[in-house]
Design a protein around this nucleic acid. Sequence first.
DNA 1: TTTTGCGTTCGAGCGCGCTCGAAGTCCTAG
DNA 2: CTAGGACTTCGAGCGCGCTCGAACGCAAAA
Lengths: 182, 182
Amino acid sequence: MATDDLMTRALEALGDDGPLSVEAIHRLADLGDLPEMMTIAEVADLLDISPHTLRYYERAGLVEVARDGNGHRVYDAEVVRRMVFLTRMRLSGMPMRDLRHYISLVDSGAHTVPERLDVLVEHRDTIRRRIRELTLSLTAVEYKIATYGGSTGPDVQTLGTTTGTDRMAMPDEPLRRAVPAE
Amino acid sequence: MATDDLMTRALEALGDDGPLSVEAIHRLADLGDLPEMMTIAEVADLLDISPHTLRYYERAGLVEVARDGNGHRVYDAEVVRRMVFLTRMRLSGMPMRDLRHYISLVDSGAHTVPERLDVLVEHRDTIRRRIRELTLSLTAVEYKIATYGGSTGPDVQTLGTTTGTDRMAMPDEPLRRAVPAE
DNA sequence: TTTTGCGTTCGAGCGCGCTCGAAGTCCTAG
DNA sequence: CTAGGACTTCGAGCGCGCTCGAACGCAAAA
């Protein structure tokens, strides 16, 4: 029940807009058919980040990666999974510092699970807040586009609409520009 | 129709979570009962940013603000409206550089309206994309919280649930930790 | 008259998250 | 034998958006 619901919502979230969705779905679902060993280039490719960044994360203490005989990094499945996690959290806006904290909890044993949950829950709330903020901004921008006579609706009325009172936010000029200067 | 719809969505967006919402609604709606003249401190207060930042935006060429006899900044209603706009756009993640561009369009006359719309539409799409990303991340985090036995559902099962196959993303440890080290 | 307080300018500094380049090692293909 | 390419470490640099502090000006209150 819960899982199905989540999946449904994930798919809904994807909805329109092709390319990003495919990639996103891929990342959301595909784990398990991971190669046993991967090179830095392969992992970078998988996560769509640069090898530079991967090394940087390692330097930052977020993962430890084994080396082969030549001193080259060897990413095993577990490490790759962690990298996937880290990348995902970064993408959702969690700062490195928090990630470091979380990782240190993970590395210090199962008894830190409650504290890890605290971190996750807090981050969840942060994401929710951010989504709400963005939704609000989106509304405002859409409104402005609409009153500008933008491409939101079918009938485009350029200027004139904007001479009236801008009762809702998003002002810059179209008010007061009854007789433009140009 | 369109306006009502937008307003509805804005209110929906606020929904839960008190303090932020009140503030947000305030910002979304309240414009028009602006004082004719405001000091930097008042504007800073209104926008909930520091006077430092306000001066910084000015230095960055986003607004020009008049001075009084003492060389102190005097924000008139128009400038304040622009500041509100700028702040809102910043909050929604538009980079300063784009804002500078937009402002330069505004300042160069009504004939730039189409180009301004382009900017707005593009930004709208950016916000939408970001919301989609965040929604996805949110789902993933919620899933992880759930499988951890977090506070998402009513019945909390700590550990044990997490021993199974993590079919969906977000792995770090709870797998493979059948016999924890600690 | 001195102090308090709010403002000014200017330039430097900071935190974050990369991003890059130099210099070196090693393996493989031509 | 040599050239190319993928990797390594290390440290520096960068873009962004503030954020701060020093040194100063002016005006009303103590």
